[in-house]
Each structure stands twice: as structure tokens, then as C-alpha cells.
Simulated assay, not measured.
Amino acid sequence: MSEVVTGDAVVVEVRVAQTPSRALAIIIDMVVQITVLFGAYAIVGAFAPISDPAMLQATMIVLVVLALVGYPVLFESLSRGRSLGKLALGLRVVSDDGSPERFRQALFRGLAGVVEFWLLSGAPALIASLVSQRGKRLGDVFAGTIVISDRAPRDRGQWIMMPPSLAHWAATLELSQLPSEVAQAARQYLSRWHDLSPQVQHEMGIRIATQVASFVSPAAPAGVPPHAYLSAVLAERRRREQERFARQAARGAYPQTTPPPPYAHPQPGPQPYTQPQQSPQPYAQPQPGSQPYTQPQSYPQPGPQPYSGGNGARRPPAAPAPEPPQATPGGFAPPQ
């Protein structure tokens, strides 16, 4: 990973392309160029007996220039930094500030590529890419560009887990107003959380958590980190979706000749299936007279009872806890 400062003075992390992938992309491009040259030579050679020798020689020079210089320049300019080899390996050429590659930069790279790859067999490009921290070859240094990997890393396949200390609070959330796009943005942030620097983790987490908090109630307890808040919201949302799908499957999975299972509603009606009180849930509401969840020490609240309310309602404490130093919007904890 490498940091890129955009024109708006925003630091963005990009994944710099590795030398083996870049070398393979260059080999693919060179194979395409050689194939085009052989095809052009065959076509021009067919007209050699009836063509002027000077015209034939000029045509061959133009074809060589188009194949060696015009191919990468046109492809990278029209496809926003991609040639056929880079497209096959998920690479892209961008400016040093993260903006799309310009025609001037593609031209510098194409001209330098003739010297680096075709005249000197790629030795200067290999040495320069090994010395540079961002893997730049000479054409990138002259053009002010960088080659990045445009493909996102594979998902680790891990579920978004519910923080145990927030399970009691998450069971009281109102999630019906949360848009799917916002939830998807939070899910992508959590999947990339370990690949981000601590500063980017916190800044992006605060922005996404504040956006999610505008659609979700009640508010998070004071001092909750943004990633923990988003994990609790998404885990509770997934749990409720799984319960809804299970109820839908239970209504239509059993024919009339098969007796209903013990947990299914015996008679059809306006509400064919209701949530049984005796069935334990991962984050079930506490019964009166019991206290299944205790207030975690990491998020202290004033008063003897952290959450109180009548008729099963959950309300935040009457007196909010004092904000820690350098508090961030939404009550989320600052980075350590």
C-alpha cells in the first residue's frame, strides 16, 4: 500500500502494482505488438511487387512506430490507463496525485518504453522499479505516473461478528430506515479495515459511522469505536434478516399432509408464525427480573442502571457520560 495526495489535499491509499505482475503485463503487450507487426509485414509484403520501394519503406516505418508507440499510447489514453496486458492483470496507470492518466503522460511512457524494452531489453525498467519505493520505471518517473492494482483484495470470508459488549444495546436498534447502499459501504469498510492505516481507519470510520447513525436509533453508547459500532449494526441487521427468511421458509416449507413442527404455528391466520417466547435468540430481550447483560467496563455509564425504561423500552441514560478528550462527532472514541 502507498499513500497518494490528491489535488484536494486528501490522502488516499492505493495498492501499488508488484513487479512480477507488471512484467507479465508487459510481456502480454509485447506479444500483441509483435503479432500486429508480423501481420502488417505480411500484408505489406503482398503488395511489394506492385509498390514503389520508397513508399513501401515509409509504410514499414509508420507501421513500426504505430505498433511500438501508438499501441500503448492509444490504449492507455482511451481506456484510462489500461493496455491489454494491464487489463488482463487488473492494473491501471494513474498520475502521482491519483487522477487519470493524461495523453501527454501516456506519450512519455510510450516513447520511454521503446528505449527501455525494445532497445535495452527492459534492463533500465527493471533496475528503476527495484530501486523505486513505488515500483516506478523510467517512463513513470518522466511522466509522473504510477501503476496501481485496480482489483480489490479477495474477501477473507469472515463474518462480521457482534461485539459482545454491544449485543444488549444492538437488540433495541431501529434499522428499518437504514438504506442498503449505506450498509454496503459500511460492510466494505469493515472488510478492508485491516488494510488501512490507523489514521485512515478512524477518519473513514467516523464518516461512515456518522452516516449510519443518522438512520439508526438509539444512539451508540459514548466511547464506542466506529468499527465496533458498525459491526454491531451490521451483525444485528444480518440476524434479523436471517430470522425473517427463516419465518418465510417455515410458512411454505411444509405441505398440508405433513404435521407442522413443534415451533411452527398450528393454524393459518393473519399471523401464521409468531416468535416463540421460549426460543432463545442470539441477542434476545432480557426477561423481567433478570439481568443477562452487564455493562462492560470499557464503556462506563453513570448511575447504578445503565439502561432503564418502562414496558420493555430501552432508553439512553438520563445523564450522558463526560466526553473523553478529543471527542469525535457521534460519540465515537478517538484513535489510540
Rank of each mutant, 00 (worst) to 15 (best):
S2L: 10
D8T: 07
V12L: 13
V14D: 05
Q18T: 14
T35F: 13
F38L: 12
G45D: 12
A48D: 12
T59M: 14
A67K: 01
V69A: 04
V69F: 11
R80Y: 00
K86M: 00
A88N: 07
S95H: 10
S99I: 05
R102Y: 00
L111Q: 05
G113L: 08
F117Y: 13
S121N: 08
L130Y: 08
V131K: 10
F142Q: 08
A143R: 10
R151V: 09
R154M: 12
D155F: 02
Q158P: 04
M161H: 07
M162R: 09
H168E: 11
Q177E: 11
S180C: 06
E181I: 09
V182P: 02
R187D: 12
Q201P: 03
H202T: 14
I208N: 01
H227P: 10
A232M: 03
A232S: 03
L234T: 00
E236V: 02
R239V: 01
Q242R: 14
E243W: 14
A250S: 15
Q256D: 11
Y263H: 08
H265I: 10
Q267E: 13
P276T: 08
Y283M: 04
P286A: 12
G289L: 05
S290L: 05
G303N: 02
A318Y: 09
A318H: 01
A319V: 14
P320K: 09
G330V: 03
A333S: 11
A333Y: 07
